[in-house]
Protein backbone atom coordinates (compact mmCIF):
# COMPACT_ATOMS: atom_id res chain seq x y z
CA UNK A 1 0.00 0.00 0.00
CA UNK A 2 2.81 2.43 0.98
CA UNK A 3 4.61 1.65 -2.27
CA UNK A 4 1.51 2.44 -4.28
CA UNK A 5 1.08 5.73 -2.41
CA UNK A 6 4.72 6.57 -3.05
CA UNK A 7 4.22 5.90 -6.74
CA UNK A 8 1.21 8.21 -6.68
CA UNK A 9 3.36 10.98 -5.18
CA UNK A 10 5.94 10.50 -7.92
CA UNK A 11 3.16 10.60 -10.49
CA UNK A 12 1.87 13.81 -8.91
CA UNK A 13 5.28 15.46 -9.28
CA UNK A 14 5.50 14.47 -12.92
CA UNK A 15 1.92 15.58 -13.57
CA UNK A 16 2.53 19.10 -12.27
CA UNK A 17 5.98 19.50 -13.76
CA UNK A 18 6.57 20.90 -17.27
CA UNK A 19 8.06 17.47 -18.13
CA UNK A 20 4.55 16.11 -18.59
CA UNK A 21 4.01 18.12 -21.78
CA UNK A 22 7.42 17.02 -22.99
CA UNK A 23 6.46 13.36 -22.66
CA UNK A 24 3.69 13.92 -25.21
CA UNK A 25 5.79 16.14 -27.45
CA UNK A 26 8.74 13.80 -27.82
CA UNK A 27 8.40 11.08 -30.44
CA UNK A 28 7.20 7.80 -28.94
CA UNK A 29 10.22 6.00 -30.42
CA UNK A 30 12.56 7.80 -28.03
CA UNK A 31 10.41 6.88 -25.06
CA UNK A 32 10.18 3.25 -26.12
CA UNK A 33 13.93 2.94 -26.78
CA UNK A 34 14.65 4.66 -23.46
CA UNK A 35 12.41 2.22 -21.59
CA UNK A 36 13.90 -0.77 -23.42
CA UNK A 37 17.43 0.37 -22.58
CA UNK A 38 16.40 0.86 -19.00
CA UNK A 39 14.98 -2.68 -18.78
CA UNK A 40 18.04 -4.14 -20.51
CA UNK A 41 20.40 -2.42 -18.11
CA UNK A 42 18.36 -3.41 -15.11
CA UNK A 43 18.30 -7.08 -16.15
CA UNK A 44 21.81 -7.54 -17.52
CA UNK A 45 23.73 -4.79 -15.69
CA UNK A 46 27.48 -5.24 -16.22
CA UNK A 47 27.28 -7.56 -19.21
CA UNK A 48 26.08 -5.07 -21.80
CA UNK A 49 26.22 -1.85 -19.82
CA UNK A 50 28.74 -0.25 -22.19
CA UNK A 51 26.52 -0.98 -25.20
CA UNK A 52 23.44 0.44 -23.51
CA UNK A 53 25.33 3.60 -22.59
CA UNK A 54 26.65 3.93 -26.14
CA UNK A 55 23.13 3.71 -27.57
CA UNK A 56 21.96 6.14 -24.89
CA UNK A 57 24.59 8.70 -25.92
CA UNK A 58 23.60 8.41 -29.60
CA UNK A 59 19.91 8.62 -28.72
CA UNK A 60 20.41 11.68 -26.54
CA UNK A 61 22.54 13.48 -29.12
CA UNK A 62 19.86 12.74 -31.71
CA UNK A 63 17.08 13.98 -29.41
CA UNK A 64 19.04 17.18 -28.76
CA UNK A 65 19.42 17.67 -32.52
CA UNK A 66 23.19 17.41 -32.48
CA UNK A 67 23.48 14.08 -34.27
CA UNK A 68 21.58 13.16 -37.41
CA UNK A 69 21.39 9.56 -38.48
CA UNK A 70 19.78 8.81 -41.80
CA UNK A 71 19.45 5.05 -41.86
CA UNK A 72 18.03 4.96 -45.41
CA UNK A 73 21.11 6.62 -46.91
CA UNK A 74 23.63 5.47 -44.29
CA UNK A 75 24.44 9.05 -43.44
CA UNK A 76 25.62 10.34 -40.08
CA UNK A 77 26.26 14.01 -39.37
CA UNK A 78 27.09 16.00 -36.26
CA UNK A 79 25.97 19.62 -35.97
CA UNK A 80 29.24 21.14 -34.83
CA UNK A 81 27.90 24.68 -35.23
CA UNK A 82 25.35 24.13 -32.46
CA UNK A 83 27.81 22.44 -30.14
CA UNK A 84 30.64 23.91 -28.12
CA UNK A 85 33.13 22.51 -30.65
CA UNK A 86 32.38 25.07 -33.35
CA UNK A 87 29.97 27.55 -31.78
CA UNK A 88 30.67 31.03 -33.15
CA UNK A 89 32.81 33.10 -30.81
CA UNK A 90 34.38 30.40 -28.70
CA UNK A 91 37.13 29.46 -31.14
CA UNK A 92 37.79 33.14 -31.89
CA UNK A 93 38.23 33.91 -28.20
CA UNK A 94 40.83 31.13 -27.89
CA UNK A 95 42.74 32.64 -30.83
CA UNK A 96 42.53 36.03 -29.11
CA UNK A 97 43.86 34.59 -25.84
CA UNK A 98 46.72 33.06 -27.79
CA UNK A 99 47.61 36.43 -29.32
CA UNK A 100 47.41 38.20 -25.97
CA UNK A 101 49.18 35.54 -23.93
CA UNK A 102 52.68 36.90 -24.37
CA UNK A 103 53.57 35.98 -20.80
CA UNK A 104 54.28 32.44 -22.01
CA UNK A 105 57.05 31.30 -24.36
CA UNK A 106 55.69 30.56 -27.82
CA UNK A 107 55.77 26.76 -27.67
CA UNK A 108 54.05 26.78 -24.26
CA UNK A 109 51.50 29.27 -25.54
CA UNK A 110 50.55 26.82 -28.28
CA UNK A 111 49.83 24.20 -25.64
CA UNK A 112 48.21 26.44 -23.01
CA UNK A 113 45.88 28.27 -25.39
CA UNK A 114 44.59 25.49 -27.56
CA UNK A 115 41.42 23.71 -28.55
CA UNK A 116 40.95 21.95 -25.20
CA UNK A 117 39.85 25.29 -23.62
CA UNK A 118 36.48 24.61 -25.24
CA UNK A 119 36.00 22.08 -22.47
CA UNK A 120 35.80 24.99 -19.98
CA UNK A 121 32.73 26.40 -21.75
CA UNK A 122 31.20 22.94 -22.02
CA UNK A 123 31.89 22.23 -18.37
CA UNK A 124 30.15 25.46 -17.41
CA UNK A 125 27.09 24.20 -19.25
CA UNK A 126 27.25 20.87 -17.37
CA UNK A 127 27.44 22.75 -14.06
CA UNK A 128 24.42 24.82 -15.03
CA UNK A 129 22.43 21.64 -15.63
CA UNK A 130 23.43 20.24 -12.26
CA UNK A 131 22.43 23.42 -10.40
CA UNK A 132 19.46 23.39 -8.02
CA UNK A 133 17.71 26.24 -9.86
CA UNK A 134 17.72 24.22 -13.10
CA UNK A 135 15.84 21.42 -11.35
CA UNK A 136 13.48 23.78 -9.57
CA UNK A 137 12.49 25.11 -12.98
CA UNK A 138 12.05 21.65 -14.50
CA UNK A 139 10.46 19.56 -11.76
CA UNK A 140 9.23 22.27 -9.41
CA UNK A 141 9.83 22.84 -5.70
CA UNK A 142 8.04 19.64 -4.73
CA UNK A 143 10.07 17.67 -7.26
CA UNK A 144 13.48 18.96 -6.28
CA UNK A 145 12.86 18.50 -2.56
CA UNK A 146 11.83 14.90 -3.16
CA UNK A 147 14.68 14.26 -5.58
CA UNK A 148 17.33 15.62 -3.18
CA UNK A 149 16.00 13.36 -0.44
CA UNK A 150 16.00 10.51 -2.96
CA UNK A 151 19.66 11.12 -3.86
CA UNK A 152 20.58 11.14 -0.15
CA UNK A 153 18.64 7.90 0.28
CA UNK A 154 20.40 6.43 -2.75
CA UNK A 155 23.86 7.19 -1.37
CA UNK A 156 22.84 5.80 2.00
CA UNK A 157 22.10 2.41 0.39
CA UNK A 158 24.77 -0.18 1.06
CA UNK A 159 24.21 -1.86 -2.31
CA UNK A 160 24.18 0.91 -4.86
CA UNK A 161 23.51 0.46 -8.55
CA UNK A 162 26.16 2.78 -9.93
CA UNK A 163 24.69 2.57 -13.43
CA UNK A 164 21.93 4.90 -12.15
CA UNK A 165 24.43 7.70 -11.55
CA UNK A 166 26.22 6.77 -14.78
CA UNK A 167 23.00 7.05 -16.77
CA UNK A 168 22.18 10.43 -15.21
CA UNK A 169 25.65 11.91 -15.74
CA UNK A 170 25.83 10.67 -19.33
CA UNK A 171 22.62 12.51 -20.14
CA UNK A 172 23.83 15.67 -18.43
CA UNK A 173 27.21 15.58 -20.15
CA UNK A 174 25.93 14.85 -23.65
CA UNK A 175 22.94 17.20 -23.51
CA UNK A 176 25.09 20.11 -22.38
CA UNK A 177 27.19 19.77 -25.53
CA UNK A 178 24.52 21.82 -27.23
CA UNK A 179 25.06 25.53 -26.56
CA UNK A 180 21.48 26.72 -26.77
CA UNK A 181 19.49 23.66 -25.81
CA UNK A 182 15.96 23.28 -24.48
CA UNK A 183 16.19 22.37 -20.80
CA UNK A 184 13.32 19.88 -20.88
CA UNK A 185 14.59 18.05 -23.96
CA UNK A 186 18.04 17.91 -22.44
CA UNK A 187 16.89 15.95 -19.39
CA UNK A 188 14.15 13.91 -21.04
CA UNK A 189 16.17 10.70 -21.32
CA UNK A 190 17.17 11.01 -17.66
CA UNK A 191 13.51 10.54 -16.77
CA UNK A 192 13.89 6.93 -15.50
CA UNK A 193 16.61 8.05 -13.05
CA UNK A 194 14.61 11.10 -11.99
CA UNK A 195 11.56 8.92 -11.31
CA UNK A 196 13.72 6.42 -9.42
CA UNK A 197 15.17 9.15 -7.20
CA UNK A 198 11.76 10.72 -6.66
CA UNK A 199 10.51 7.30 -5.58
CA UNK A 200 13.45 6.83 -3.23
CA UNK A 201 12.77 10.30 -1.83
CA UNK A 202 9.37 9.09 -0.66
CA UNK A 203 11.16 6.43 1.41
CA UNK A 204 13.36 8.98 3.16
CA UNK A 205 12.70 9.42 6.88
CA UNK A 206 12.78 13.20 6.66
CA UNK A 207 10.10 13.09 3.98
CA UNK A 208 7.92 10.79 6.05
CA UNK A 209 8.29 13.10 9.05
CA UNK A 210 7.59 16.39 7.27
CA UNK A 211 5.32 15.16 4.50
CA UNK A 212 2.70 17.79 5.23
CA UNK A 213 5.07 20.61 4.18
CA UNK A 214 5.75 18.78 0.94
CA UNK A 215 2.07 19.03 0.05
CA UNK A 216 2.35 22.80 0.50
CA UNK A 217 5.14 22.75 -2.07
CA UNK A 218 2.91 20.71 -4.38
CA UNK A 219 0.19 23.34 -4.02
CA UNK A 220 2.72 26.08 -4.72
CA UNK A 221 3.86 24.29 -7.88
CA UNK A 222 0.25 23.90 -9.02
CA UNK A 223 -0.43 27.61 -8.51
CA UNK A 224 2.77 28.56 -10.29
CA UNK A 225 1.98 26.33 -13.24
Amino acid sequence: MTNKLDLLKVLLVILISPLLIKIFNVSLVYTLVMLSLCCLLFKLKNKIGWLVFLILIILNLQLNRLLYIDINHFKVSFDLEQSFFKYPGIGESIVRYHQEGLWLPYFLRNIFYSFYLILFSWFSSVMKMLSPIFWVKTIGFSGISLMVLGIIQYFKKTKKDYFVVGWFLLIMITSSLRVLGDSLTSIYLALPVIIYWLYLGCKNEIFRKYQIYWYILVLLDIFLK
Binding site: F120, S124, M127, K128, S131, P132, I133, F134, V136, F141
Partner: peptide
Protein backbone atom coordinates in the same frame (compact mmCIF):
# COMPACT_ATOMS: atom_id res chain seq x y z
CA UNK B 1 12.95 35.76 -4.57
CA UNK B 2 12.85 31.99 -3.94
CA UNK B 3 14.11 31.34 -7.47
CA UNK B 4 16.69 34.06 -6.98
CA UNK B 5 17.75 32.49 -3.70
CA UNK B 6 18.34 29.15 -5.42
CA UNK B 7 20.23 30.98 -8.14
CA UNK B 8 22.87 31.95 -5.59
CA UNK B 9 23.66 28.26 -5.21
CA UNK B 10 23.97 27.62 -8.95
CA UNK B 11 27.09 25.61 -9.63
CA UNK B 12 27.84 27.51 -12.81
CA UNK B 13 27.75 30.85 -11.00
CA UNK B 14 29.76 29.56 -8.06
CA UNK B 15 32.33 27.55 -10.00
CA UNK B 16 32.46 28.34 -13.70
CA UNK B 17 31.12 31.75 -14.75
Amino acid sequence: PIYRYFDHFSFDILFTR
